[in-house]
């Protein structure tokens, strides 16, 4: 399944789609988007890459084993939820910074949680797709 058009397109699409996915993640709190959609778009970009070239090259483009994303994502999500415990508040209380940053606005633990979701979704989908594709090749 090697098509010159597909592979060329994918090569230029990959960074764009990744950028788009991060954009979706960042704006999720105020516009449609968020960790789930962002993670899916990012995963789809690598899935296309694996389709256009092969899994080996997709894995190389990703650099990190997708399963690592699952663990790291869960860890980030849980840490963001536990942070409030140290401030004497109940589990998962949202904590926000006082100052507003130029692009994001205030940053809070729910946003960090969303980053965790993004990574888990990315890791899960790629783990599934890569293992399946490798099984077939």
């Amino acid at each position: 399944m090697t098509s010159v058009i597909l592979s060329t397109a994918t090569r230029y699409m990959l960074p764009l789609l990744l950028l788009f996915s991060v954009f979706l993640l960042l704006r999720g709190h105020s516009e449609p988007g968020g960790g789930f959609v962002g993670g899916l778009v990012a995963a789809a970009s690598f899935a296309f890459y694996a389709f256009a070239y092969n899994v080996k090259q997709a894995r190389r483009a990703l650099r990190i084993n997708p399963r690592v994303f699952i663990g790291v994502g869960l860890l980030i999500a849980v840490s963001s939820a536990t942070y409030s415990l140290f401030l004497g508040k109940s589990f998962m209380t949202g904590i926000w910074t006082e100052t507003e940053f130029p692009v994001f606005g205030a940053i809070g633990t729910p946003f960090i949680f969303d980053v965790g979701v993004y990574l888990v979704v990315l890791g899960v989908i790629l783990t599934i797709v890569f293992s399946l594709a490798e099984g077939e090749q």
Binding site: G28, H29, S30, E31, P32, G33, G34, G35, F36, R67, I70, G71, G73, L74, A77, V78, A81, F91, M92, G94, W96, G105, A106, G108, P110, F111, F113, D114, G116, V117, V120, V121, G123, V124, I125, T127, I128
Partner: peptide
Amino acid sequence: AHGHNVVNVILVDFRGFDTMGEITVLGIAA
């Protein structure tokens, strides 16, 4: 919760605990 997108706020804040369970399940499925 400082969010304009209510659906996203529900997912990561109001009902964040559910989402936590959900991503765990996803991880297990993978």
